[in-house]
């Protein structure tokens, strides 16, 4: 297993999903100035080919539904990175009725990047740490999600009906 992990850490594809305001710092990280491709990380449009789910900031409950769907569509091994203070404990939006407070109650978060908003250097640092952790087998949140599936589903069901899927349109 460890030999597999060693290779997994080398080339990571990050899901291109701008869930919150942290998405504004992703273009500088992806493009010429900070260039995260140096570390073998590129954005990927479809969840089925992605390894990292980067939650860029607060999640409204409406987005959380989509994020959970997206997470469950991704193939394991997969890793969740919480980005910004609002994924840790709600941050600025601690008393907002619309956003969730602790991301780790709903998804197994492997790594947090603190700050509002975190600097590109912090994001790079987190990715390097994630690479190291994956190679050494430290981050295995996706296994925890399977092991504690009932508990995660129970928390999710408190916010919305996990079995019903509804979209507002005519």
């Amino acid at each position: 297993m460890s030999i597999l992990n060693k290779f997994r850490g080398k080339s990571l594809w990050m899901l291109h999903y701008c869930t919150g305001c942290g998405a504004i710092e992703m273009p500088p990280v992806m493009t010429s100035r900070y260039d995260m491709e140096r570390f073998g990380i590129i954005p990927m449009a479809t969840p089925r080919q992605a390894d990292i789910l980067l939650i860029t900031g607060y999640l409204a409950v409406k987005t959380l539904k989509r994020v959970i769907r997206t997470y469950e569509q991704m193939h394991s091994p997969k890793w969740v990175v919480g980005f910004g203070a609002c994924t840790v404990n709600g941050g600025m939006y601690w008393d907002s009725y619309a956003t969730i407070k602790k991301l780790e109650l709903y998804l197994p978060v492997d790594l947090y990047i603190a700050g509002c908003m975190p600097r590109p250097e912090a994001i790079m640092d987190a990715f390097i740490e994630l690479r190291k952790g994956i190679s050494s087998g430290k981050y295995e949140g996706w296994k925890k999600y399977i092991e504690n599936y009932d508990w995660y589903k129970k928390n999710q069901a408190k916010l919305f009906d996990v079995k019903k899927w509804s979209v507002n349109y005519e």
Partner: peptide
């Protein structure tokens, strides 16, 4: 279909 970024 907006509303994914609602923070009130």
């Amino acid at each position: 279909n907006p509303g994914y970024l609602h923070r009130a």
